[in-house]
Every structure is written in C-alpha cells, then in structure tokens.
Design a binder for these strands. Structure first.
Lengths: 130, 130
DNA sequence: TTGACATATTCCCATATAGGCATGTAATGT
DNA sequence: ACATTACATGCCTATATGGGAATATGTCAA
C-alpha cells in the first residue's frame, strides 16, 4: 500500500509545509485565493489544490464573495492534533528536568520541583497490549 | 514532485497512524521491538521500518540490550508539532466564544477589534497576541 | 562452530501524491 | 453577448510510500 491520502485526516493534511503556511496565513481572517497566491509565491493551481485538501479534511471554511472565494482556517479541526501532541507534553517536561538534574546523584527522595507526573497510569498509553 | 519524504520532519513522520500508535506505546518506557509487534499486531518488518522512520527524524531513541533493541519516544521531538498547533488554540477559543456569542448583530464598533492586516507579508501571522 | 533468537534490510508493486501546464467554469462589467 | 477576472479541475510524470515475503545482520548460548 501507498501512503494514506492527504485527505484522510488532519495529520496527513498538515504534513505538507505549504498547507501549514496557508493555514497560518488565513488563521486570522478569511482571504481570497489570490492573496494566498501572492503571499506564498506559489502557482494559483497549486494553492487551489492545497485548499481543496484542507477543505476535504475540514481544516478550512470557504465562502463565496462575488467571483472570489474567501478561505479561512477552521481552528477547531486542528484541535485533535493539539490534543495528541499534548499527551507528550508531560514527557518532555519530565525529560528536561531529568537532564537538568544532572547531579550525578540519583535523585534524592526529597523531590524539589517536579510537576507531578504520577497521576497518570500506564494504561492510558498501552491500551492495546496483547 | 511527489510528497515530501516521511523522514523529512516530524510532521510527515507522525502522519502515519501506526507510527503514532508506536509513539504512544513507547512513551512511558522503552520497549523491545517484539513487544511493539505484539501490541500493535503488525508484522515485524513493518514495525522495524516504522521505527526506522521515527529514528531518522529523532522521534525515538534506541538502545541495544543483548539481542534486543529498546526503543523509546523522544518527546522533545514532538514539541514543534505541539507548538505549531498551539498557535491555533486561541483561534478555536475565539471561534467558540463567537458561536456562543450568537448575538446576531455585528459586533459593536468599540471592542477588541483586530489590527490592520491588509498589507502584511507571508509570515505575518506569528506576531499576534491573544 | 552451530543454531536459535531478535531485529534490520532488500525487493517488488499498487497507489497517491505535488508541481507544471492547459483548460474548464462561475461571476462581473460593459 | 462578450471579454475579463478569479478559481477550480484535469492531465501528466517523477517520486516516495507501506505492506508482504524473503533474506541479511547481529547477538547469545551450548
């Protein structure tokens, strides 16, 4: 099998850097295709195709205004990505403090300033262990 | 041109669902390939290939233990993803409140209006505050 | 050394790209 | 109706993919 379609989900859609740029550019307010073209320096058909992908996965909203099409980022659709990455936030915090803790010593029982990490159960992650 | 390589960055690497599952599975503690295979129900070569991609983009660390290879998620490498998605957090919040604000009327003239954007450049988006 | 175990790599292939270019289509102005 | 503007879509191609099967590499144990 080949790679999953870019339109299969937000993860695949935003893997393309140009599409991320587009999303950034139209996050604040809707913009016509022409402005995106000018701003990113891509060919118009390219932009239209990227927008098509973004639309298919719900990452943008469109609205017609005369002959122009106004696109705007649908931030909600980025949320799943945010949430997935967020799951790892505590880990890099943990890893960071570990590195900083390079005090040779094994950490003393008196814990100084570690965010509490123990709330989470291992099960949250390996839900599908055999 | 074809799609960017899966090994070109973390965005492309995590576009594949199986790779995200792997990252989840080995986020807490390092695990040998065999356990990942059992846990995800994939063929061993598949898992090895996915791990290769993850390694190439620095999303996992490896360590040899006898004949086994112990892999572990390098959460740090997920951070850029988190940060990119985070940029949009305020937007979905806005959008949410907007929806709740269903006050029909266009917003009153004196309010938190947005700065002038009409003539900004390509990567203008970043310098906004909430 | 030989064999068993654990993991990695290679080969093959159907599939989906992204870009360039040409063309199609919708809305507007005259 | 016609020309023009603003997008969208179709066609083409080189390229990378992920899965399966087979094989290679590496490590330990007897």
């Amino acid at each position: 099998m080949a790679r999953a379609a870019t339109t299969s989900d937000a993860f695949n859609a935003v893997a393309e850097p140009r599409r991320r740029e587009i999303l950034n550019f139209i996050a604040l307010e809707e913009r016509p295709v022409g402005e995106i073209v000018d701003s990113l320096g891509l060919e118009q058909p390219s932009v239209s195709k990227h927008l098509r992908v973004l639309r298919d996965v719900g990452l943008v909203h469109v609205r017609r205004d005369g002959r122009r099409m106004l696109y705007r980022t649908n931030a909600e659709a980025i949320r799943p990505l945010h949430e997935w990455t967020e799951t790892f936030e505590r880990y890099w915090r943990h890893q960071l403090s570990r590195v900083k803790e390079r005090a040779e010593r094994k950490s003393s029982p008196s814990n100084d300033s570690q965010p509490d990490f123990s709330r989470r159960r291992k099960d949250d992650f390996d839900s599908n262990k055999n």
